[in-house]
Amino acid sequence: MEKFNLSTSRLNALIKHLMTRGIVYAPHKNGEVSFSFDEVRDPGKVILNYNRTLQSIKKYFLPPREQLLSFSLKSGSLSKVEPENPLRIFLGVHSYDMQAVLRLDYNFSQGNPELNYLKRRQNSLFIGVSFEPDTYHFSRSVGIMVEEFDGFDLFLDKHSSGYTLYVVTQAGEELLSGFDHLEEAPDRPATHREFRNKIKYNFNRLSEVFDHAWDSSVWEEIAQRCVGCGTCNLVCPTCYCFDVEDDVNLSLADGSRYRSWDGCMLNSFAKVAGGENFRADLSDRQRHRVYRKFKYITDVTGEPWCVGCGRCTAYCTAGISIVETVNRLCEEYEQTVLRKPLAKQDWVL
């Protein structure tokens, strides 16, 4: 793989170059402590050294509210709304968020493939950046390294004196054409990046743990603290459930059908007409959310659908930690199923 040196001082020049090729989105400061992906207008405002953005880049492919079709009530006619897809360059994406996009690609292309998502996703290029894990990140525990290149076209690996710019795909190489004076980078030893937050078992053992976790008392215990606000769904880069509703304009002549993000932690999510609620208890909803991240899709694809970003924990209103939940289930599994601690060699973290 080709790799180049990129000094911190040339970063702005690179961003300016990218802006001539497409619309560039990158992390910016959002208030004092938070970060968000936004369109780049001033390269100087881009921040590549960040812990996490409140929302992942999911919002660009699955907007929080999106028009599906429009209708005229007078003439009874319908029209389709097709998303636009200009070339978009996502700069400064962490590996777990890239992995989340690849998981959404699966969700929206298998079964009934969905044009709205795939069209938005189509002309997108991704430039990754390495990060220093904080106390919430645990992506390593779900098999995602900081320097996981999969999905990226280019990757910026930070080291003490600047960045190494890896050219991962042909598209990445084309993106750099016209950006001159790049000098070949030497091989460097991989930077050691320690994840303090860890799931107790290797992720390939979790499916077994979840085979035995259905009746655990853990669900009831976390439900006692959970307020059902749905924040954990809202910030999760792999949550994609949605609601659909019609809106009629004030003129009452025409309107649109919209879809908007929904969350399985909200009380009404599984409620049907007549009042029956198929997941009325918070413990059932907690269990459903966590099974969606570690069991249901994982049993089909082999990959955890939680990418270890730590958002649901960092932003939980009630301080509920998904790693703690999973670790509790691992401990219960040891105590009630294995009846001994899992052998050391299973710790591949």
């Binding site: 009934n112 609601d243 599984a270």
Partner: peptide, 8 residues
């Protein structure tokens, strides 16, 4: 949705 996407 009826098509396996919305999760409801």
């Amino acid at each position: 949705c009826g098509v396996g996407k919305c999760g409801h």
